[in-house]
Amino acid sequence: MTAIARRALTLLLHPAVAVAARVILGGVFAVSGTVKLIEPVENFMAAIHAYDLLPVWMERPLAVTLPWVEMGSGVLLVLGLLTRASVMIVALQLAVFTVALGSTLLRGISLEDCGCFGALGFKESNTVAFVRNLVLLALAARLGMERAPSWALDRWLQRPPL
């Protein structure tokens, strides 16, 4: 049993796992941000409105800015640029989204579409999105453990200290 657990742990700590986690997590954010950016901002405003969490005057500013942050942090994460910072920004967004989704579940608001991927074609309910976010948070946690990310542009660009 311990042998299996140890093997699983070494497997989990393998750099390839971190690279995969980075690409998946970053990819999700890059795609969801981009999709929201190329469609009318009102669609995302409506999605935010459905959560019934924020005052109406905050919906437009958030709908305008958040997708840029999502896209930017996602792209940086995939490439492994400023990796630690982008992991933190992505994890923070994920945490906020997860709390927001959780609150809709607790308040019994059923969302047909969580608004996560705009009009990309698949509509996730808030339950599905909540569970999916927990998985993504696990990936973020794995990335948080990584000190020097492999297959990252940081690696090539960072100069050794003088």
């Binding site: 981009t34 840029w68 930017g72 940086l76 640029l81 400023l82 542009l153 940081d154 660009l157 100069r159």
Partner: peptide, 18 residues
């Protein structure tokens, strides 16, 4: 020397994405 290139690359990448 340590971080400048990363920031520069990040700005370029974000610029391209935008």
């Amino acid at each position: 020397r340590r971080f400048g290139l990363q920031w520069l690359a990040a700005v370029v990448v974000i610029g391209l994405a935008v």
